[in-house]
Design a protein around this nucleic acid. Structure first.
Lengths: 219, 219
DNA sequence: GCAACATTCTAACACTTGTTAGATTGTGCG
DNA sequence: CGCACAATCTAACAAGTGTTAGAATGTTGC
């Protein structure tokens, strides 16, 4: 009957998760890992940080049990510990967007192209993609596409987009998506497509948001 | 076309929310505020910390926009900025419980009484309470009951429970709840009731969990 | 075994945070 | 006005964190 000792430890354990979410670099790593399993080197490159720093942050995430790793040859692959971790990231991000005006302003600045989904629902987009009314392209690296992508989407990584424009049907409307609202790849893809005469839009949602909304993902 | 500057700031803003969640004391304050608006003094008392420390933590929560305050005479009342903040707390706690074995073990230690809801659903409990088959008691302080409580529940604060036992129908099964799984008040209530010959159980869920599950709350 | 390489560990630094105690602000009431 | 009191501000210190660079570990392939 001395709850104070054990009681306080309950919140301390939860605070371990909070501490893991308290660094911008770690949040970026979580978002990258939400796109699929990656090696330390890949994560460091894509987050734009030193490999040793990435390793240190991954260690912190691992100690909070938000990520797991496995060795495959010389490489160590990291992944999120579960879908709930990806959803927690979305939840924290949504709360930040809802309450921090500065974040909303910053998001408006980076997003040049208007969001298609603001007008139409995810389901109707899915229907249009199914019947071939529009062509949905996934502009993330191909490995992320392979780890899971929107139905009817084809892989068209941003780096290869320019030389693969011929693969896109000329008249069709093109809808691009990437990792989510913090990712600028779909914006850049839309900008490029428009200078080449395409009718292009983006969806802010990435695979994580799509999946959290209860919609299907293909592999 | 220099996304790195503005890009990194996006994660920094979200990390502000993470930092607010990175301290056990602040998490405890959030859980207390999820039960309803409270003054700084009340929060400090219930969290078992100095008023000045509570004020400092509340300032941090306010700067992360997770809480708001309003003055009423000599007292300043704090409240969560929205229902989404309470749900974020639940989400972080759930992830911690899912991935941190230590937390699950600690929870098992403090919870002497078995959870009624592990066996039966929230809906069937609601139905039994409606038809008077069981009596549901809210053992939190009365002000929290008034801020919102489960349907058909009656206020019976833990401190007054012993001298108000006569109000409880003798034969009926009693179901107690409090602030949630981290709160020991319902366990203590169940222990007391059983020594007095009542058939008593608890529900681990508090008002926040109930509400997040889409179930109704009364005022 | 050895070289190559991915990853982690260690040490060190500036920086931030949690906590305590004392001083200060600001409101209500006589 | 001036006292009582809720809440915040300030200063100070120990403890923890993010980052960098160099050293060490462990695996692959010869």
């Amino acid at each position: 009957m001395k709850p104070s000792i054990t009681k306080s430890s309950l919140y301390e354990h939860v605070a371990r998760i909070g501490k893991a979410l308290a660094s911008p670099k770690r949040l970026e790593l979580i978002e990258l890992l939400a796109q699929g399993e990656k090696t330390v080197e890949t994560l460091a490159q894509q987050a734009g940080i030193d490999v040793r720093l990435a390793s240190a942050h991954l260690k912190a995430l691992r100690e909070a049990r938000l990520v797991e790793n496995r060795r495959e040859g010389k490489f160590i692959h990291y992944r999120l510990s579960g879908q709930d971790v990806a959803e927690l990231w979305l939840n924290v991000r949504d709360v930040a967007e809802a309450h921090l005006l500065e974040l909303r302003l910053a998001l408006e600045q980076i997003s040049a192209a208007p969001d298609l989904l603001s007008a139409e629902s995810r389901e109707s987009l899915l229907a249009k993609a199914r019947c071939g009314d529009i062509v949905v392209i996934d502009v993330r690296p191909e490995s992320e596409y392979e780890a899971g992508h929107l139905p009817f989407a084809r892989s068209m990584p941003l780096g290869e987009l320019e030389k693969r424009l011929a693969e896109l049907p000329a008249g069709k409307e093109v809808v691009a998506y990437c990792r989510g609202p913090f990712c600028v790849m779909s914006d850049e893809a839309v900008a490029l497509l428009r200078t080449r005469g395409f009718s292009a839009h983006k969806i802010t949602d990435g695979v994580t948001e799509w999946q959290a909304g209860g919609l299907p993902i293909e592999r």
